[in-house]
Design a protein around this nucleic acid. Sequence first.
DNA 1: ACAAAAAGTGGTATCGATTTCAATTGCAGC
DNA 2: GCTGCAATTGAAATCGATACCACTTTTTGT
Lengths: 326, 326
Amino acid sequence: MAKIKDVAAAAGVSASTVSRVLCNGPVSDKVRKRVEAAMTRLDYRPNLAARRLRSQHTDTIGLIVSDIRNPFFTAVSRAVEDEAYRNGMRVILCNTDENPDKEAMYLRLMQEERVTGVIFAPTRQLVTSIDQQALGFPVVMIDRVSADAATDAVVLDNRRAAAQLVGHLLQQGYRDIGGLFGNTSNTGMERHAGFSEALQQAGLAAPARFVAPSVEAAEQAVLQWLAEPARPQALLVSNGVLLLGAVRAIKSAGLHWPQDVALVGFDNEVWTDLLGDGLTVMEQPVNEIGRTAMAMLLERLEEPERSQRIVVLQGKLMVRGSSLPQ
Amino acid sequence: MAKIKDVAAAAGVSASTVSRVLCNGPVSDKVRKRVEAAMTRLDYRPNLAARRLRSQHTDTIGLIVSDIRNPFFTAVSRAVEDEAYRNGMRVILCNTDENPDKEAMYLRLMQEERVTGVIFAPTRQLVTSIDQQALGFPVVMIDRVSADAATDAVVLDNRRAAAQLVGHLLQQGYRDIGGLFGNTSNTGMERHAGFSEALQQAGLAAPARFVAPSVEAAEQAVLQWLAEPARPQALLVSNGVLLLGAVRAIKSAGLHWPQDVALVGFDNEVWTDLLGDGLTVMEQPVNEIGRTAMAMLLERLEEPERSQRIVVLQGKLMVRGSSLPQ
DNA sequence: ACAAAAAGTGGTATCGATTTCAATTGCAGC
DNA sequence: GCTGCAATTGAAATCGATACCACTTTTTGT
């Protein structure tokens, strides 16, 4: 494969000049044309490894999520990548499966890649222990933050969103409301807090259960819960993955919403409006989350010293049949 | 950030020796320990750009798909990435939106990255014009192939799968069967071929329509089709994205399956068994496709001269309520 | 005990680009 | 025609690692 020297020779100029053509440096039009002709003739492709080594910038960002198959992350990823490529950057995707060891491993890898920055949806273990200084690149957290994290972040107003869902259920006449939450992320904790607060304010109990963030775990938990004598009239489920599990459980128990049990959840996935009269959900602005995360990363690179910034976005309540008045 | 020389100095050895520790070369245990200690002390991270430049292998593969939000590609991607990281390789993900210009652009980028290989779901335009020799790296195509493509590939037996779906509908008593296919991929064409053949063999007409591979396009097409006087009794839909559009159309037309129109499709997405009595679909072995693609890429790298290989996998018919006997 | 082979280590060149600095060219102004 | 300045261009150093070769030390076989 042709290298810069070959192009230089073919165009009768020095390698420096070819490099200038590549990087839009000062080159006369005549020479530029000649060099560009030589490049196409030789089918030249600059070696990015060499460029990165010398120029010390990689134009690469890392995107670390728990599982790209979670539609929330799928959508966010797509938005991040669009924005990245629009800014001439590449994206390395990492799936951690909510495993702190994998998270650490990938962060290490990101250091070796000398990435420009990282967008990261961390587990609870990692969320507070991120040290950008030590890492050597800025981090923007998405979806999950804690008050004492020291990085920029883009998150949903989880407490408020959960409280809104509870408020909606209360308004519809439900009083006996249970909550199902993921046990690995801070997000689950925050949504639980909003859930509890809202119910306590109404003077009601706030029975909650926590499960591993998988469809199967949710299905099993809900199946069991619904079989208990003190089963709730309504169920709030903390994210799209768990929601799918809850739906499966309700179906396989032969129950129906809202009459047997009302159901509301997070994440407006494509199938939520197709089931019966639809599932009431809190939609997250997934595109905006991705775009904003990328934008914040770029801003941080521009201005490394500016103060930490957390962008809190609001969800959108989509009322559908699963929470009809009792 | 510490570099190899710093580690060498700290450990009192040469840079070569540190490099050997890094690459598991021949080093005495005593020295290895000392070097490793120095590495942790300095928090050393090898610079991958430098390593790649010098060693001439990047351990990076490209994964080029139309849209990661298509659950088929989501699942395949996850399998590819698992397999890649298991083999010490990184993955660069690219979304082309079925746009041949973007495809060409990303292939160019892959050359600049000097990737080890690429896994690629091409549009019809690109599928035959791929020249691995010129590209400089091996390509494994997934999901979409043509007979005259010159690369390794992993695909579903699309003709047979489509024919099986048709056979199933025929068996259930349907005679008036329409087909909806994507118009950008070879896959759509092959499934159409299987669909047509099966119906012709039964001496029946095979009305087919082709649309852009988006939910909206499918919804509109189906809505229109169902409004026509000669509307089919059953509909076969060529992939999960289009299937979602078809479902939306049928719902918004106020119709029901199977009584108003039977519905079968491809891709066993998470929601397909939740709608009414479920949607009859042809499940693709998504994990196997991803794993196999990665395995074939590795094999090709081992043995560059072996003959072209196309692995054809079989789908699995999941019979559900949407195709109940008429 | 000695030769031969193997293991361990260091020095230097090199991967392919960019950066820096110095040299050259071209042109305006006088 | 000469000076000064800006615009181009080239030569050489450099980014941080690995590869290759040469050398020393240790091990092995007879």
